[in-house]
């Protein structure tokens, strides 16, 4: 199971120490939120797990084995931007992973093999609420739809660890709530560990099982270069969320709300439309 162990991890850029002696064990199927002020190294930390950056000292173990030095299909990623390929259609984006994994020369499959991958990709797109958009290009999708696409694309590889770098930070609140519900469902259904960098504490508490806050303990100007960030808080959400099990959180139960097709007139708008929303508005007014 995809447990991650981080031992005495340091990251330095020249003289600048960014992360200082981080040790951490992440349980399989956890949903970890990394929070902290800007520039505290949480994205750097995520990139080291991804393999995009290397540690200066210390090691990261995935299932007891040291991580490969470069990104690979065992770790999926969704960034805030640039996560999908603008020159491929929605379907092409989702098919890209399986196609490149199996066709090492051309990067494309043909005939029956292609149809099989396409069927799988369509099922995945339906799963994230993008059915019907297969032939569009990413530029024709809204921001929320693009992030759904990025999730679908990453999940096609069945990664053991899914890394999210402020994936929903640029989305409108309404859209964000929908995609949170989707994210929660995917985490419940798919066997993977999720690590998410976020600025939004509310998002962290809504989704995760554990919140880790990075902070620089010493932050006076003359100390900044020589002291990096460490883990300032390590909060286990209580009562615990467990992947694949019911919880007592009201918010976790609306499993259908992330699918725009079931939302009727609510899709794409936050305006009051007659029932619950209207009441909230009148109560506020």
């Amino acid at each position: 199971m995809s447990g991650i162990e981080i031992r005495n991890l340091w990251k330095e850029y020249g003289d600048q120490i960014v992360l200082e002696n981080i040790s951490l064990t992440i349980a399989p199927r956890a949903f970890v939120a990394l929070v902290g002020p800007s520039g505290c190294g949480k994205t750097t930390f995520l990139r080291m797990i991804l393999g995009q950056e290397s540690a200066t000292r210390g090691e990261i173990l995935l299932d007891g084995k040291p991580l490969p030095k470069e990104p690979g299909p065992d770790r999926g990623v969704v960034y805030q931007r640039y996560s999908v390929f603008p020159h491929m259609t929605v379907l092409g984006n989702v098919m890209a992973g399986p196609e490149m994994r199996t066709a090492r020369i051309l990067g494309r499959r043909f005939g029956a093999a292609r149809r099989a991958i396409a069927d799988e990709a369509r099922a995945m797109l339906a799963e994230v609420g993008l059915a019907g958009s297969e032939d569009k290009y990413p530029a024709q999708l809204s921001g929320g739809m693009q992030q759904r696409l990025a999730l679908a694309q990453a999940l096609m590889m069945k990664p053991r660890v899914l890394l999210l770098d402020e994936p929903f930070g640029a989305l409108d609140p309404g859209i964000r709530a929908d995609i949170h519900a989707l994210m929660r469902r995917l985490w419940n259904e798919i066997e993977m560990t999720v690590i998410m960098v976020t600025h939004d504490l509310r998002e962290a508490f809504t989704l995760s099982t554990r919140i880790i806050a990075f902070e620089r303990r010493r932050d006076r100007p003359e100390e900044q270069a020589r002291y990096g960030a460490t883990i300032a808080q390590d909060i286990l959400i209580w009562p615990p969320r467990v992947a694949g099990r019911r919880t007592m959180y009201e918010i976790d139960l609306h499993s259908l709300r992330d699918d725009p097709t079931t939302m009727g007139q609510f899709a794409g708008t936050t305006r009051p439309t007659g029932d619950g929303h209207a009441q909230t508005y009148s109560a506020l007014g």
Binding site: L50, P71, Y79, Q153
Partner: peptide, 23 residues
């Protein structure tokens, strides 16, 4: 091209060759 795209392609199991010709 954004570095993110190259890394993304790597997580989709692309080799250098496939990154060159498909991304």
């Amino acid at each position: 091209l954004p570095r993110e795209q190259i890394v993304k392609a790597e997580t989709l199991s692309a080799s250098s060759w496939l990154i060159a010709c498909r991304v």
